[in-house]
Each structure stands twice: as structure tokens, then as C-alpha cells.
Design a protein around this nucleic acid. Sequence first.
RNA 1: GGCCCCAUCGUCUAACGGUUAGGACGAAGCGUUCUCAAUGCUUAAAUCGGAGUUCGAUUCUCCGUGGGGUCACCA
Length: 452
Amino acid sequence: MADKKIKVRFPPSPTGEWHFGNIRTFVFNYLFAKKNNGHIVMRFEDTDAARNKPGSDLLQLELLKKMGMDFDEGPYYQSNRKEVYKKELQRLIEEGSAYEAEENQAGTGKLIRIKNPKKNIVWNDLVKGEISISSDSFKDDKGNFDFIIARSIDDPLYHFTVAVDDWLMGITHVLRGEDHVTSTPRHIVIFDALGAPLPLFGHLPTILSSENKKKLGKRNGAIPVRDYLDQTYLPDAILNMISLLGWNPGGEQEIFTRKELIEKFTLEKVQKSPAIFDASKLDWINKEHIKLLGDEVVAKEIADRLSKRFFNESIIKKIIPIVKERIVKWLDIETMMDSGELTFFFEAPVFEKKMLICDERMRKGIEVTNEIVSNHLKNITAKIEVIPEDKFDAETVKAAIWDYSTENGRGIVLWAMRIALSGKEKSPDPFQISAIIGKEETILRLTNAQTL
RNA sequence: GGCCCCAUCGUCUAACGGUUAGGACGAAGCGUUCUCAAUGCUUAAAUCGGAGUUCGAUUCUCCGUGGGGUCACCA
């Protein structure tokens, strides 16, 4: 028995940029379609010209592309399909399931209403199970049970265009936000009038804002997904984050590649209750995804953020592990560069002599003067000088001076050494720095610090 | 308010009707350390309430309560 090919849709209104709430719906459709070897239709629902924001369709398409989420068909624009809707509207009127009613508010024609079937409308929701809503709920505040499907024969409304398109485009699975639950019975009534087979419906739980626990939206702190991309969060990390909002495959794994997400996705594991969006986990997820990346990727990100003056391929290669463990996202490399946390790997630092003397706390009561520090630096320089060039790694350097620093106060000796090499109060340990900048440069910096 | 949906740590969540209710993020503490980062270990932290079914309920049923969604000539 060959199942009909699964077909889903991305139906945004071009009214602005997407936040996590919007894109979550697309992500689940994407995952579901990819998992089941399905087909994705892109369709802009722009029948309300007044609400459309010019250019936001392009912005949305661009975001999809940046997120690596492709579609197979479209984009369609409902505003280009007016003839299709008109034809179906006429048919419904002829067949008697819809009719022209009173003049519309704009005075541009007669409203078209669809006859209320007066029954319970039931469907088996893919995520929530059986839902039953009486068509009596269509009643408006004037007591009319027949809801409006078009402002006029030339001006169809959302409920109608959605049903017509989902039918004509052969959509098999309608996965959308929970906010559409109450409009689903209306769509079903239209499908029935159209004589169209019903797709399967699945309503995803809402994403709530962490500040007020209301539906995520522009008014309650919804940040555009593009902002996260601009902040150099990885698309796959964002995808990972979004996927886990209202879904999980059941195990204890938290970090998933795109491929794993697609493999594991099932509607059965979608949560029924709303999830609150808390971005703090994204930092962790992004860091974990960076760990998954090859060193060459990290090297490129570092290189892209270095000025010409600093560019040094072999050093970049050596600082990869250090950068990797210190950043959450690529942009942090820039921050580190700006605050000088990386520059000392490329050029000798400038600092004041008094920095060579460590804090009270680390001295453990031992008196330290400039002369004593200079002397320590001189002694360790001598020990480092005898290390062969080809054995100049962090372990060897550490071994060469470990005993000396232990005897003379590690805090005092190693702090001075680290400052001499980095000029920073906070930095990787002096052995790592030495190994990275090399023997010659290490000795040079150590020597300079003695005579500061 | 009507209608619909939902209910496990602060957050995301796991748990054939039988577990000391598990994991992760975040938080706190400790260890390792010359600093920072990273890392390791530890701790605090939850089944909304009440009945019922059952030998046994986080799990099933009902009632409360709470939360969310939706009630346009928007989508």
C-alpha cells in the first residue's frame, strides 16, 4: 500500500520578522517533512494588503536560507491567486453552500458567508488527540452563525484562502500553532463545502515568553531570530534549541546535529503543553556545537577577525584549543581581541612593572620586591634557555621551572612569568603561552620584563 | 465570560500502573590550579489540590484550582 507522499507547508504572513515562536512552527514542519521524505510548500498569506510589510517576505526567505531550511515548491503568494479563490467562491455560491450577504464595510461589494452545518466538528489532532468543537461557536456577536469567508467575490479572507490552497496544493499534513485550533473547525467546514478531502491537522503548543508567560510575540520580548544569527550563533545550534522546545526524542541526549534531529523527529513526542522560551540554554548548546566543528572552521573564524597586522597562520593554529574553550559564539573572539585577551599571542604586551608582583592573597605572606621578581624571571629564563628548540612544548616548559617555582612560591614566580608573557591579569597559563609564542619570543619577553 | 487545550525541579524535559521520581540548562559549593577559562565531583530544586479505580497512581476517571489559546469584514 503506497502511502501518498507527505506534503506540508510554510505559510507565513509577510508582516515582519520571525521570532522563535514563528520559526518553531517551520522547524517542526521541516523536520517532519525531511524525516518522512516529504515535500514542503512555501506560501505567503498576504491577502490583507493593509498588514503586509513590503520586503518582509524577502527577509523571511533570507532567514530560511541562512538557517539552511529549504523548501520544494513556491514561494506562492496568495495575492497572485485571487482568480483561483474567486472561481471557488462562485462555485460555492452556485452550489448553495455559501451566499452573498450584506454590503461590506468598505462598500466594495457584498460579504460572502458560508452556511453553518450546525454540528459538532471533530478531528483527531496529530498532537493533541481528538478535539471536538461545535459549529455553534462560529456565532458572531450579532447572532449570525454563518461566518464570513470573503469581503466580496474578489476579496477572500484567510480562512477561505487557507482551505482552498491546502486543498489545491495537496497538503497532507497541516502542522501549525495551537492558536489555530479554534479556526480549524471553520477550515473543515470550508473543505467540506469545497468537496475537498481533509488533510491531517496537528497543533503545536505555544511558545511562551519568559517575561510574562504569554504567547511569544513582538509585544512580549520576542527577539528576531536574525538577531541571534547576527550574534553569530550557529544555525544548527539554533535549530537544536528550537527543536527541544516542545519536543524531545526521549533519551538523555541534548545535543543533536541537524541530521540526528531529522532522523529522530516524530509527532508523537511533541509536548501538549506550552513551553517557555529561555535563551540561557542556547549559549550552552552553541558551545557544544562549536566543539563538534573541525579545527579548520575555528581557524577560519579566528583569521576572519584578526587584523592584517596580527595575521600569523601558525599561531592561529596553536590557539584554536584555547579559543574553543573560551567562547560561546564566534563573536566572542572579537570581544576577546578587543579586550586584548588574544593579541599577546601575536605581539609583545605592554604593561606596567608593578603588575609583575602578584596579589597579597597569592604571596602567602612572603615579601616581594621588584628586585626579587626580576631575579626570579632571570632564573627561569636561564632554565628555559636550555630547552631544545624542538622540544619546546607546554609540558617541557612546565617541567623545567616547576620545582623552582614551587620552592620560591608558585604564586609569585608563575604570576610574574605569566604577566611578562601576556601582560594580562587573566590569561591561559604561562606554559601554554610559551609553547605558542615559541622559545625565542618567550625568552625575549622574559628578558624585557626584568629590565622594565 | 463562552468555547478549546494543558498541568513533573526556576526553565527544557524523562519515567510498560511498581524508580531512592532520572537527565540537561541555570544556581550554589568543593577539588584541580599562579590568574581566568575549561574540566571533575557534590548540593539545593518538582509530580497543583481533593476524591475515586487499584494490592499499588506522576501515570487511569471525575471534580476543583491554576495556566495557556481563541472568540475580526487580521492572519
